Structure formats: C-alpha cells, structure tokens
Amino acid sequence: MASETGVDGGVRIEVVDDPTGEEIAKLRDWLRVDVPRLRMTSVHHPVRPGEMSGGVLAAVQTAALSPEVFAALITAVGGWLATRTMSRRTRIRIKIDNREFEYEGPANARPEEIARQLGQAVGAPRPPQTPPR
C-alpha cells in the first residue's frame, strides 16, 4: 500500500514472455538513463542444473519510492512500452507492495497515453504541481 510519502514496499517489474531476459535487460538500461536517481536491483531466475551463471534476468526491483520518483518511473516505463509497441506488443507485470498488475502496451500509442493508463492502473501518486506564474 502506498503511503503519503511514496510506495512503502517498492516496485517489481517483469516483462511477461521474456524467457531469455533480454527485454527486461533493455527496460533496466532504459530506466538507468531515463530515471538516473532510481535505485534498482536486478532479480534473476534461480540457477538451473547445469548452468554456471547467476541465472537469467527475471525482473528489476526498487525499494520504497517517493511520489516524484514513482511518477518518473511510471512515465519512463510508459515511454519504453511506446517504443516497443512500434514493432510488437509487450506485456509487463508490475508488483507494488501486495498488489499486482499486468499491462500490455497498445499498438502505436503515445508514451504519455501509456504512462497515463499505467498510472491509473497502479494508482500512481501525482507529483506536486508547480503553480503557474
């Protein structure tokens, strides 16, 4: 559950139907550039018998977030999904505290529209508005 100061338990994002971990790696790289103040950890699938690596990348996860950083995260994910939907539909799963949402980016949607839809689905807090001058 989100508190007044942000998201208490953090956020976990997975790309559905990404057995190689390539798409979540692309999203992780996108978020590092788009939201540099976001602290993420990479979550890997458990190592299977015969594998020598740390397993395939499964998700990115954050700790508790302020409303501003959470809004920036949702906006960045919307932008990433918009670039993906030009070539194929991409479905993501977002876990926030004890809630879970799946979202499939619509074909040819604008990043702002996807971010708005995502924000409504997950109940994203809105960043404070600067009063007009």
Rank of each mutant, 00 (worst) to 15 (best):
residue 39 R to S: 11
residue 41 T to I: 09
residue 70 F to Q: 06
residue 5 T to L: 12
residue 65 L to R: 00
residue 18 D to W: 02
residue 35 V to D: 00
residue 101 F to Q: 01
residue 40 M to Y: 00
residue 59 A to I: 04
residue 76 A to L: 01
residue 12 R to P: 02
residue 122 V to Q: 02
residue 30 W to R: 12
residue 132 P to Y: 11
residue 12 R to T: 15
residue 57 L to T: 00
residue 17 D to K: 08
residue 126 R to F: 01
residue 52 M to W: 12
residue 84 R to Y: 04
residue 83 T to D: 15
residue 11 V to H: 08
residue 96 I to E: 08
residue 16 V to P: 03
residue 49 P to F: 12
residue 53 S to K: 05
residue 111 P to K: 01
residue 90 T to E: 09
residue 64 A to P: 11
residue 43 V to K: 09
residue 111 P to C: 06
residue 110 R to F: 15
residue 127 P to G: 03
residue 65 L to W: 03
residue 60 V to M: 02
residue 28 R to V: 11
residue 39 R to Y: 09
residue 57 L to P: 04
residue 88 R to C: 06
residue 117 Q to R: 13
residue 36 P to I: 03
residue 72 A to H: 04
residue 9 G to Q: 07
residue 2 A to Y: 09
residue 76 A to G: 00
residue 109 A to Y: 14
residue 101 F to W: 15
residue 111 P to Y: 05
residue 106 P to V: 05
residue 17 D to G: 05
residue 16 V to F: 04
residue 72 A to V: 02
residue 11 V to I: 14
residue 91 R to G: 08
residue 44 H to W: 07
residue 54 G to L: 11
residue 90 T to H: 03
residue 51 E to T: 06
residue 130 T to D: 03
residue 44 H to A: 13
residue 37 R to D: 13
residue 48 R to C: 06
residue 82 A to S: 09
residue 14 E to K: 10
residue 98 N to R: 10
residue 18 D to A: 04
residue 36 P to K: 01
residue 77 V to A: 06
residue 20 T to Y: 14
residue 78 G to C: 10
residue 78 G to M: 05
residue 47 V to N: 15
residue 12 R to C: 06
residue 4 E to Y: 06
residue 81 L to S: 04
residue 110 R to N: 13
residue 84 R to D: 04
residue 74 I to Q: 04
residue 89 R to G: 14
residue 12 R to K: 11
residue 82 A to H: 06
residue 97 D to Y: 13
residue 78 G to I: 05
residue 62 T to C: 09
residue 85 T to E: 14
residue 92 I to L: 01
residue 56 V to W: 06
residue 77 V to H: 04
residue 72 A to F: 01
residue 47 V to I: 15
residue 127 P to N: 03
residue 92 I to V: 13
residue 109 A to H: 08
residue 38 L to A: 12
residue 30 W to P: 07
residue 73 L to H: 08
residue 4 E to F: 09
residue 125 P to Y: 01
residue 99 R to P: 03
residue 112 E to I: 04
residue 117 Q to G: 07
residue 119 G to E: 02
residue 80 W to T: 10
residue 20 T to L: 13
residue 47 V to W: 11
residue 83 T to N: 10
residue 42 S to T: 13
residue 89 R to P: 01
residue 20 T to E: 14
residue 69 V to N: 05
residue 18 D to G: 03
residue 70 F to A: 13
residue 106 P to H: 04
residue 31 L to A: 05
residue 104 E to M: 14
residue 40 M to N: 00
residue 99 R to N: 13
residue 15 V to T: 05
residue 131 P to F: 12
residue 70 F to W: 06
residue 14 E to M: 07
residue 99 R to E: 14
residue 105 G to C: 11
residue 38 L to W: 06
residue 56 V to Y: 11
residue 97 D to E: 12
